[in-house]
Design a protein around this nucleic acid. Structure first.
Lengths: 347, 347
DNA sequence: CTGAAAGCGCTTACAG
DNA sequence: CTGAAAGCGCTTACAG
């Protein structure tokens, strides 16, 4: 068992060397020659002795010393709007997994989608000497990314894309398209969109994908039927209230770009005496774990959240490796459930 | 504006010293004498020049070098079952805030409540040389905490307590008591409990608090009415299904030790043709942001999640400071909503 | 009041 | 095949 206590003596290279009657530099050389056994680094027998002892005492190099010397911290910084957004929490699980596999550790910080906070958190991470940043709160209208690029900070975007920067996202446009096709096929001709925050590509792309396809099929969506909103339940509820307050237009279906907004819309529908799945169809986005378990199961476009996280790490490691990386979009699939499975008879 | 780029030259102490015609050690001394201005560290004028330049170029000491020298990383490790559990995500926000204020940074890792994974993650954090651990996934029956204590790793528990170790938690027993009193007052005499995982103090204490009070008031709760379950929505649903499948006993109220389990129970009730808030009362725990926004608003015992996070940091800093710290419990309050506000007439 | 040295634990050319 | 030196950027007694 390893015995590494914060602040107290851990086993050092020098300890190993002393134990073996060797010089620390020799031990170091061997412990790095993982791939090519004893490739000029030391005699095979010596190498074996070193490795055996290292394993036995559970040696692990002091990351501070190593980082100081190599100028690589093996630390990745992750910035998200909020971890209490389930979508980001799940993506982060993917990030943690992939980083772990690559022997990197990750910091994660909440920016609350506030530009000043985004800057502050990025600065803290850089001060900590992270090797690179995974940014999950990119704003379409921000200039932080340009600054980071100028400062040559290695980074990739995750979840939200911004044209011109590398990113790992869901194909949100396609997701919106799937939702539109589904609702059209079920007979809906009057639909509204709870569109999310206009500064987020997720909101914009999902909305665009939906609207384009619906119009392409011959449907009408007036601008007034697209309601921008916060991503959370409360945002969804007030957006839905806005939609229902229009007495001249009562949509038979709502597409919400986010499951939580969709849940809020379900609550609003309930308050207005509408039974979801009969009087009103609702489709959400992300297929979070809650969707299928709600009293009225929610249809949702499933985005591969874990994979987005893993991919983000892969892309960032690519950047750190000097490769040129692109924006990559992962395909979503539609999960139809009780909230939108009924056929709608247009009157 | 600071200009710190990973891997590239950042401003060092030596740079500052050269610029000022001083020795690096002098600069270092001043930059540490924050409290007592120039207290024997340097001439007031020199101190001022140093501080001005440091601010101007945005100097921040290299944490690796500093850590190597001082044997303090100013890093805290946080281990949670899963960040996709909203409760932990919110607690983590409190942790991040408090750590930030104290100039600490935090790693957070998911252990999935799996003992092997808990060990692994703790080991990774220790290998990273964190100064201490905040453990949010403690099991009542585990032995990891004993090991850590023997190895003299500084740590505190958060969210879940284990007797004999310092912790920051909600007063879960009190929370259960509040729920029991409320349901009793509303006229319920036949109740069931969705109790959560028996290895978690949250589950055990909330259940005990509830059962004790209910029995104390003169109510009956047979052991068969206490159903242990997972903490998530699916766990709540199957627990509720179990409860409803007992044809000899149809409770008029259910206390779930967790909001997500409560939501699952709502779904199950729905499937069984029971209208929550009329045929069945449900009370959850934590008052997560969803509770108030559900189509049928969920009554819930509100735990001070953010405060628990902040407190955990405070306690751990105390431990690092050599203080003896205790288990601290924060008081919850009951939020009554539609799901349990109806009066129940016992037949 | 300020400088110079030593050393934290590592890695990396460079000798031999 | 192995050792010795230098140095990453800092802090901390210790001189002077």
């Amino acid at each position: 068992m390893t015995d590494i206590r914060p602040g107290s003596k851990a086993v050092t290279l020098k300890d190993l060397a002393a134990e073996l009657g060797l010089h620390a530099s020799t031990v170091s050389r061997i412990l790095h020659a993982e791939t090519d056994t004893a490739r000029g680094a030391a005699a095979p027998a010596t190498a074996q002795r070193i490795r055996d002892l290292a394993r036995k005492v559970g040696y692990s190099p002091n990351p501070q010393a190593k980082g100081l010397r190599t100028r690589r911290s093996h630390l990745l910084g992750v910035i998200v709007p909020r971890l209490s957004d389930l979508v980001l929490a799940v993506i982060y699980e993917g990030i943690e997994e992939a980083a772990d596999d690559a022997h990197y550790s990750t910091f994660v910080m909440n920016s609350r989608d506030d530009p000043a906070m985004q800057r502050r958190k990025a600065e803290i991470m850089l001060t900590r000497r992270v090797d690179g940043l995974i940014i999950g709160d990119a704003h379409l209208d921000g200039d932080i990314l340009i600054e980071l690029t100028e400062r040559q900070v290695p980074f990739v975007l995750m979840n939200r894309a911004v044209p011109g920067f590398p990113s790992a996202t869901c194909d949100d446009t396609l997701g919106g398209t799937l939702a539109a096709q589904h609702l059209w096929d079920k007979g809906h001709r009057s639909v509204s969109v709870i569109a999310g925050e206009p500064y987020a590509s997720t909101a914009v792309d999902r909305t665009n994908g939906f609207v384009s396809r619906f119009r392409h099929l011959g449907g009408q969506i007036p601008e007034s039927a697209i309601v921008w909103s916060r991503f959370d339940t409360l945002g969804g509820r007030s957006a839905a209230d806005t939609i229902f307050s229009d007495k001249n237009r009562r949509p038979s279906a709502i597409f919400a770009v986010n499951d939580f907004a969709a849940i809020g819309a379900m609550g609003a529908a309930n308050s207005h005496g509408l039974l979801v799945g009969r009087d009103l169809a609702i489709v959400g986005f992300n297929d979070t774990s809650l969707a299928a378990q709600l009293p009225i199961a929610l249809s949702s476009v499933r985005s591969p959240m874990m994979d987005i996280g893993r991919l983000a790490v892969k892309l960032l490691l690519g950047v750190l490796n000097g490769e040129t990386v692109q924006a990559v979009k992962l395909a979503p699939i539609l999960c139809v459930r009780e909230s939108s499975s009924h056929e709608w008879m247009s009157e």
